[in-house]
């Protein structure tokens, strides 16, 4: 393979990986963030305890989280094929990523919100804030630095998932590593994809940490 083709191949792979990771993370947050918030709000010490909902949702999240991603993806594949018409390619993989990652995101969000000082929540209640106001103006804002750190961790985890999904014909850098690096035994390509993945993880981590620190008013 000449350098030109290689660069093009890796370029496309990187773009696919980034799309899968970012879209996957975004949609996982669209689902996982409200679920995480609801787990805190309806918990035993929450502002609106709902034991039945809390138990059921907590159980669902735990079950999905305890399954290895690869197994989960294989299990979901037939259903994804049914819904979007194909079981391979970027969009099929992204769908699988989302199905596997939202519970992870929900737990990350829950952990971050747990760090919010209960005294501050109580102060807001004493002021006559509604539950919705407490969620928007107290929980999410006070936990913002921790949520951003969590988002960086979630993105990196989902990047890892997307690389694994590549092995199932999912596209992206993982796909390239398997097809060229493994089956055609081209170790150079294998190592290049690894280096690109490491660089992507480093960038995401840096952005997450910097953003979280910048948004945290407790230390500056």
């Amino acid at each position: 393979m000449d350098t030109q083709t290689l660069i093009q191949l890796l370029g496309e792979g990187t773009v696919q990986t980034l799309i899968m990771t970012l879209v996957g993370t975004l949609v996982s947050y669209i689902i996982g963030l409200p679920v995480g918030v609801s787990l805190i709000v309806t918990g035993p010490n929450g502002i609106r305890p709902m034991p039945a909902y809390n138990k059921v949702m907590g159980f669902l999240v735990n079950v999905i989280r305890s399954m290895p991603f690869l197994i989960l993806m294989i299990a979901f594949m037939p259903y994804i094929r049914m819904v979007i018409g194909t079981g391979i390619g970027t969009w099929a993989t992204t769908s699988a990523l989302i199905l596997a990652a939202w519970p992870f995101v929900a737990r990350m969000v829950e952990q971050s919100l747990l760090e919010v000082d209960p005294g501050v929540i109580e102060a807001a209640q004493a002021m006559g804030a509604s539950n919705m106001q407490i969620i928007r103006k107290v929980l999410l804002l006070e936990a913002r630095p921790s949520l951003l750190n969590g988002a960086a961790v979630a993105t990196i985890t989902i990047l890892g998932y997307s690389a694994m999904a590549g092995t199932l014909g999912g596209g992206g850098l993982g796909d390239i590593a398997i097809r060229y690096g493994h089956y055609r035994f081209q170790p150079t390509i294998m190592w290049i994809t690894i280096i690109v993945l490491v660089i992507l993880v480093q960038i995401m981590q840096e952005i997450g940490i910097k953003l979280a620190a910048k948004m945290d008013n407790r230390i500056n």
Binding site: D117, G119, V120, E122, A123, A126, M127, V138, L141, E142, R144, P145, D216, N217, R218
Partner: peptide, 14 residues
Amino acid sequence: ISMIFQQFNLLMQR
């Protein structure tokens, strides 16, 4: 009815 606390309970991010 306002309230003040021993630990102040201010919003740390504001």
